[in-house]
């Protein structure tokens, strides 16, 4: 069951979206998010949606996997929708019952907010689904490299992120294994009062922490054996280079942002 978590998982593929430079994807994603937050009308939303739909279509990632990734976020979506539905004032009252008032504006706003979050998350999923953690951190490091002048340890930060991402699936697998082993000894995680359930976690957490530290130790040794010393003077085997598709992606992203801003300035 833990294995079903797909958050931040990479689906290897050969589509143009997969082959884009990670920096392109990051920058275009930022542009897309800006457009999404500037968008105020259905027309601009439709533009953003079109952009997203085309990207997903090109990426050949099945829509099903993106929807499946949304499952853990249903609560946030419902919460946002309900809050906006009930607490938006407006002229046209649709339902008035006791202290609950639902206005037309509220309904519109709730739908807007939920759609916005959905589109935001789908796009970030598309990024992590089509970009391996390594190239993602590579791109991030390269984008943040100007900060090196301010003595920000950019390389170290990106290496930490890379390692953290790399070990998420490993730790999930480990947790699964330890849970099974303790269940085999009669541990019960599903029933009991809250306190009992919290206590039931100890037999999982202790071995998990120990193995995480053991792994960290081993990894540190392995890295030192290969003379890892941090970012100073380190060269890359795979240099990031913009290609033709990157130009298309930048152009499309810029067009989207420009269009949405223009629409917004006309009050649409």
């Amino acid at each position: 069951m833990l294995k079903d978590i797909t958050l931040g998982q990479y689906f290897p593929g050969k589509s143009p979206v997969h082959q884009l430079d990670p920096r392109t994807k990051l920058i275009v994603l930022v542009g897309y998010i800006v457009a999404l937050f500037v968008a105020k009308s259905w027309a601009s939303y439709a533009l953003c949606f079109g952009f997203l739909a085309v990207s997903i279509a090109i990426s050949t990632i099945p829509v099903k996997s993106i929807v499946r990734g949304m499952k853990p976020l249903v609560l946030i979506l419902v919460f946002t929708g309900v809050l906006n539905l009930f607490f938006t004032g407006g002229e046209t009252v649709l339902v008035h019952f006791w202290i609950i008032t639902i206005t037309l504006e509220g309904v519109v706003r709730a739908v807007f907010m939920v759609v916005r979050i959905l589109m935001l998350i789908s796009a970030t999923f598309l990024l992590t689904y089509t970009t391996s953690p390594i190239s993602l951190t590579d791109g991030l490091e390269s984008l943040l490299s100007p900060l090196k002048k301010l003595h920000v340890p950019v390389h170290e930060l990106s290496m930490m992120m890379c390692i953290a991402l790399r070990f998420i699936p490993t730790l999930i697998e480990e947790t699964d294994k330890i849970m099974s082993a303790q269940k085999a000894r009669g541990a019960d995680f599903e029933t009991g009062k809250l306190m009992d359930r919290v206590k039931a976690l100890i037999p999982i957490l202790v071995p998990l922490f120990i193995s995480a530290f053991r792994r960290a130790d081993e990894l540190a040794t392995a890295m030192e054996c290969r003379c890892y010393q941090g970012g100073e003077g380190r060269t890359k085997m795979k240099l990031l280079r913009y290609k033709r598709w990157d130009m298309y992606a930048f152009a499309a992203g810029a067009l989207l942002v420009a269009a949405v801003i223009t629409l917004a300035s006309f009050g649409l």
Binding site: I178, A184, G186
Partner: peptide, 28 residues
């Protein structure tokens, strides 16, 4: 079934968690 069929996993030493050997054996 969990109690009647005992299952020892691969590398079972990674599931130890208690403060003493006695307490760990007593968990089951």
């Amino acid at each position: 079934a969990r109690f009647r069929v005992g299952l020892v996993f691969q590398y079972p030493e990674y599931q130890l968690f208690e403060e003493t050997v006695y307490k760990d054996i007593a968990f089951g």
